[in-house]
Design a protein around this nucleic acid. Structure first.
Lengths: 149, 149
DNA sequence: ATGACTCATTACTTTTGCTAACGATGTCTC
DNA sequence: GAGACATCGTTAGCAAAAGTAATGAGTCAT
């Protein structure tokens, strides 16, 4: 029953919450450590990826999407813009807002960096059974839902 | 308010890796924000919980277990010790090492704090279907395995 | 007994997020 | 239309958490 891995009692919602929280924290740290120097931070990558997927978005929408406060998003966008990966435009209808758009170079980086950035995790995933990966695929959706709620 | 759910293409290992990485990052941020002031940090809680489960451990083993560098673990242990939740002992066989042990008060806090600490996540989990929770239960184990490998 | 290695710690830096306050723009009411 | 109010993004200042490099104490093989 008890492996070397920490396996809290997941029988109750609270127990599952404890175990999940720790697992998520550890994996987040691990992923951060795995990040190559030349690459983007977790937050930057997440935003760039969102832009690649969803097209233009306002900073506010991005902040909402990423569950960070607007000032944090300002910083992330500024970093991306400084590297030429993202471009700002005035919102056509509302002068207060802006639209952030991924640049050509940003798109290339997303594509090229994808493999490098997720290399470690991808390798790990490749070692899993098809069944385990299916569990993670479904869990990812659930986790996203949790974060949004 | 919430736009389209961020659902990267999870068909490939790399796509799943990207989606999982972002989901984990977001949830980690969300959990961090949800933490009450009077309580332990994520790292502290995780360490205390590990000690409650595994008994005495050396700082190095804890750092390894938590995927943190030794100095970070030193800080976490110091914080826990300052609050009387943890006690240090000399290693019987090796003077370089120490053994960290949870105190009575630490154990009490683990038990009492558990519910408060995971309150938000527990609430969210309670809203999920039994099937979703089962997915997360299995995913938690897989995530732990990933972090360790 | 000494030189290399290991473990934990200290000192310093980096990363990353937060809150509060501000300026610019839009909206609403009279 | 003009002034009050709200909204959006930014700036400024701060705090938490983790990383790297260097230090000190202890162990072990030769």
């Amino acid at each position: 029953m008890n492996r070397s891995t920490p396996t809290p009692p997941t029988g109750t919602d609270a127990g599952l919450a404890a175990a999940l929280r720790m697992a998520v924290g550890r994996l987040a740290r691990r992923l951060r450590a795995q990040r190559p120097d030349s690459s983007l931070s977790l937050g930057q990558g997440s935003v760039l990826f969102a832009l690649a997927r969803h097209g233009k978005m306002t900073p506010g929408a991005l902040a909402d999407h990423e569950k960070v406060q607007p000032p944090s998003m300002t910083r992330i966008i500024a970093a991306l813009e400084a590297r030429g990966l993202v471009r700002r435009m005035r919102h056509p209808d509302d002068g207060r807002q802006q639209l952030v758009e991924i640049t050509e170079e940003g798109s290339r980086l997303v594509a090229a960096d994808q493999q490098r950035r997720e290399a470690w995790l991808t390798r790990r995933l490749a070692e899993l059974s098809q069944e385990d990966k299916e569990v993670l695929r479904r869990a990812t959706e659930i986790l996203d839902r949790l974060s949004q709620s």
